[in-house]
Design a binder for these strands. Structure first.
Ligand SMILES: [Zn+2]
Ligand SMILES: [Zn+2]
Length: 821
DNA sequence: AGCACGCCGACT
DNA sequence: GTCGGCGTGCTC
């Protein structure tokens, strides 16, 4: 029999190995195989068959690593679909899908040849070998074994030749021997427990023991404590006994040596499920009950339901209700959140209703913890998982519901290593495969999602009621031009915002000021109405390039002369403006010298725990004004925020990205949701130049439907999703001329094949990253599934052909299916 | 992704 | 003449 296996590498094909007679394996099990000259990997069996390959000699499966499959057959189908849809290899999918500790690869270990076992024979080598080679021999004489990595370390930076070359010559001279070592890296956690020897089980023997220990009061004390602990919890951990009896290791060891105690090692869970609070009974309001009923009705005919609920409308309780039903039926539920930071908060809320039936899974768990969660989900002993997108890869055995909360959030799309998958979209496909259901939850649904719901492809349930009668905040626009002319450029807070901050602080309430993280898109802007020129073809904001004194479109690369007159109001007052991220703390300090001001962004939150510390300080009221980027929008459920300020809405509105409006609307709506508390109305001040921007009007009115109507028309007119599907090819190379040449060639070939579907090539806004120049090509693909896949495959072929040409071998090409920007 | 093989430049 | 640079191709 033969096994087609997936190797954890970016290889386009499966590889076939022979299964030795008597080895019992199944698809989904990990096996050790040799791949290439020496290296060994843990590969996953995808298919078992009896078709002997004719074209090559087959190598045998060396051993099996699992008694049970670590992934289910349905997962293997899912991986295959992901690889095809997102144009990557199954090996790359495997690499993101399974925990690092289930992925094994061998390392080369070297030893001295037995002929050099004694010191004299080694000493002889000193004169024959290079310094580096002899250094290795000396180290081996002491340590017996070295891995190739250790050799590299030993030679360090002083080495001119690679460790590999030195080792190879030692092996060729028969001074060293090498072998490949592959080891399981998962280590179960062991804890030592203390038992009383069976000999003392009898009462009589026990009495004798107490008498016997009369002369050893410390040991007697330990024995007494042992009884106490055993009585209390039924078992005795060594650690607890030592601590509570205040005993030393030596004293306990004496008892073990005397044969009174026995030590046993037992594997224990790393993740403690220790929620011991009261389990709350779920009470739904009438409108929430109706909502649950509506979801059930939709599920009779639809796989996916969009739950459109304004902030704090109690979406979580709806989820809890559905989770409880699934648990009762013995089924599993996956609850996906866009960011790891949100999982901790959510799990605390869910535990109030579900106790210890909930687990977390995300990439910040330790490698060993991830393996343990993996196994619990596979066995079905854990029914509910809250996690970030990586939780989608867990081996669920009875998954019946996937909840994608904050489904509009673009961080569900994986950016860098392939597969560049969208967890929401992937979850919907996975649910099809498993006959499971999906709930997409959001206050501001993604345009694509809402469109599907409006067309009847998804069920749609709206939850209007605001929980606890929290009123929507008052919305105020502040004109940036009210900053006195002489202070323009140095001041960024309008008199109106300043006034509202002052009043809020006087009422001892807190202020959050939002600043956009994506900074710096230099553009032209009308000073009178705030109009910004857009590309006629792509509908994205044009960027002003000072060096060439031209406006550039970052999608199609088209250049325009600078505008001199506003196309909206006719004014000639056009200026250049960069919507960057200003450090406004100094300004705040000057305006409010007594207020305590803190900043929350990726840079200041880099240190471990600084995030939680800051939140804690804010909750305690020790921070008056919190300035932050996107981080302050997500996740935090602060209670006493009186005012939220958006420092410069234009920085959200002018980014060259076809989704800007969607992003801006979602962000401003979400920021607004932070203002206010139970019973008290909050306030939101939006500072902007473009006061008449349509997105702002919809935000002011909290009118999602109107926003959607406007946006969907633009998407239709400019042929963006959901009316087409997009594919982006990013080319990277250290030399600008090289990427530009490759990009133009590629775009040319693509245009031949798919006329009218290609935009670009063009340099993106950030055109150089880590010493590499970038070029991007955008391709519009049809919506119908079979044509789509066909065209995708052709595009990948064209890319590979170009890559094959020796002059472009070093141009990196990254294919991004359904890109976010 | 490794790893080996193979073909050209600067050194013994 | 050799050593070693890395460009090219393959791995069941
Ligand atoms: Zn104007
Ligand atoms: Zn354009």
């Amino acid at each position: 029999m033969f096994a087609d296996v997936i190797l954890p590498l970016a290889l386009p094909k499966l590889y076939t190995y022979q299964i030795p007679d008597g080895m019992k394996v199944e698809p989904g099990m990990r096996v050790v195989v040799q791949f290439g000259k020496r290296r060994k990997y843990a590969a996953i069996i995808k298919r078992i068959h009896d078709e002997p390959p004719a074209a090559y000699a087959v190598k045998p499966v060396l051993s099996k690593l699992d008694e049970y499959p670590v992934v289910w057959p349905h997962q293997l189908h899912f991986w295959e679909w992901i690889a095809r849809y997102y144009a990557c290899t199954e090996g790359e999918v495997m690499n993101v899908a399974i925990p690092a500790h289930l992925k094994l690869s061998s390392e080369t270990i070297i030893q001295l040849d037995p002929a050099y076992a004694d010191e004299t024979s080694i000493a002889v080598l000193a004169s024959q070998l290079t310094d580096e080679a002899f250094q290795i021999v000396e180290a081996l004489a002491v340590r017996h074994e070295l891995s190739l990595a250790e050799v590299q370390q030993l030679l360090g930076e002083t080495s001119y030749t690679s460790a590999q070359a030195v080792v190879k010559s030692l092996i060729d001279q028969h001074i060293c021997v090498a072998y490949e070592s592959i080891r399981e890296s998962y280590r179960p956690r062991l804890e030592t427990y203390i038992l009383l020897s069976p000999a003392y089980a009898e009462e009589q023997a026990l009495h004798q023991l107490f008498d016997q220990l009369e002369k050893a009061p410390r040991q007697l004390q330990i024995l007494m404590k042992f009884y106490e602990l055993r009585e209390k919890q039924g078992w005795v951990r060594k650690k607890d006994l030592l601590e509570q009896a205040e005993a030393s290791h030596a004293q306990l060891k004496a008892l073990v040596d005397k044969g009174i105690f026995q030590e046993i090692k037992q594997t224990v869970d790393r993740i403690a499920f220790t929620y011991d609070g009261a389990i709350q009974q779920l009470h739904l309001t009438p409108s929430q009950q109706t909502c649950v009923q509506q979801i059930h009705d939709w599920f009779k005919e639809k796989r996916v339901v969009l739950l459109h609920g304004v902030t704090s409308s109690g979406k979580t309780l709806i989820y809890v209700s559905l989770i409880l039903e699934a648990i009762a039926k013995g089924e599993q539920v996956l609850y996906l959140l866009p960011e790891i930071a949100l999982t901790a908060q959510m799990i605390r809320r869910l535990q109030q209703y579900l106790g210890n039936q909930v687990g977390v899974y995300h990439s910040r768990l330790s490698h060993n913890e991830r393996v343990e969660m993996w196994n619990k989900v596979r066995e079905g002993s854990l029914q509910v998982i809250v996690g970030s997108r990586s939780a989608l890869w867990l081996p669920f055995c009875r998954l019946s519901l996937i909840i994608v909360d904050e489904e509009h959030d673009m961080s569900f799309k994986q950016q860098d290593p392939a597969p560049r998958y969208h967890a929401r979209d992937a979850a919907i496909y996975y649910a099809h495969l498993l006959h499971a259901r999906v709930i997409l939850g959001s206050a501001t649904p993604a345009v694509e999602t809402y469109q599907q719901a409006m067309q009847g492809k998804y069920g749609y349930v709206m939850l209007k009621e605001r929980y606890g009668q929290i009123a929507l905040p008052d919305m105020i626009l502040a004109d940036m031009r009210t900053i006195p002319r002489q202070h323009r450029g140095e001041r960024h807070i309008t008199p109106l915002l300043e006034d509202h901050i002052r009043r809020t602080l006087q009422q001892h309430k807190q202020v959050i000021l939002f600043q956009n993280r994506r900074g710096y898109a230099p553009s032209q802007i009308c000073q009178v109405c705030g109009w910004v020129p857009h590309c006629e073809q792509c509908d994205v904001a044009l960027t002003y390039h000072k060096s060439i004194h031209q406006l550039v479109c970052h999608y199609c690369g088209r250049k325009y002369p600078p505008v001199t007159q506003c196309q909206a109001c006719g004014s000639h007052a056009i200026i250049h403006k960069s919507f960057g991220t200003e450090r406004i703390e100094d300004e705040l300090h000057t305006l409010f010298p007594k207020a305590s001001i803190a900043r929350m962004d990726l840079d200041t939150m880099r240190k471990k725990d600084s995030y939680h510390q800051l939140i804690h300080r804010f909750e305690q009221g020790r921070i008056d004004i919190l300035v932050g980027t996107q981080m302050v929008v997500k996740g935090l459920d602060f209670d006493s925020v009186g005012l939220v300020g958006i420092l410069l809405a234009d920085s959200l509105l002018n980014y060259p990205d076809f989704r800007v409006n969607e992003r801006a609307f979602q962000l401003m709506e979400q920021v607004s949701g932070r203002a206010g508390r139970k019973g008290e109305k909050g306030m939101v001040v939006i500072q902007a130049y473009q006061l008449r921007h349509p997105v702002l009007a919809h935000v002011m009115a909290h009118d999602y439907a109107a926003f959607f109507q406007m946006e969907i028309e633009a998407r239709a007119h400019f042929q963006y999703p959901p009316f087409t599907r997009l594919m982006k090819i990013v080319l990277k190379h250290a030399q600008q001329e090289k990427v530009v040449e490759a990009a133009h060639l590629l775009a040319g070939e693509l245009t031949d094949k798919f006329p009218g579907q290609i935009t670009g090539p063009a340099a993106p806004l950030v055109s150089r990253i880590r010493n590499e120049y970038l070029q991007e090509i955008l391709i519009r693909l049809p919506r119908s599934a079979h044509k789509l896949q066909e065209q995708k495959d052709t595009i990948v072929d064209i890319c590979n052909q170009l890559q094959q040409q020796s002059s472009f071998r070093h141009v990196r090409m990254i294919v991004d299916v359904d890109p976010m920007g």
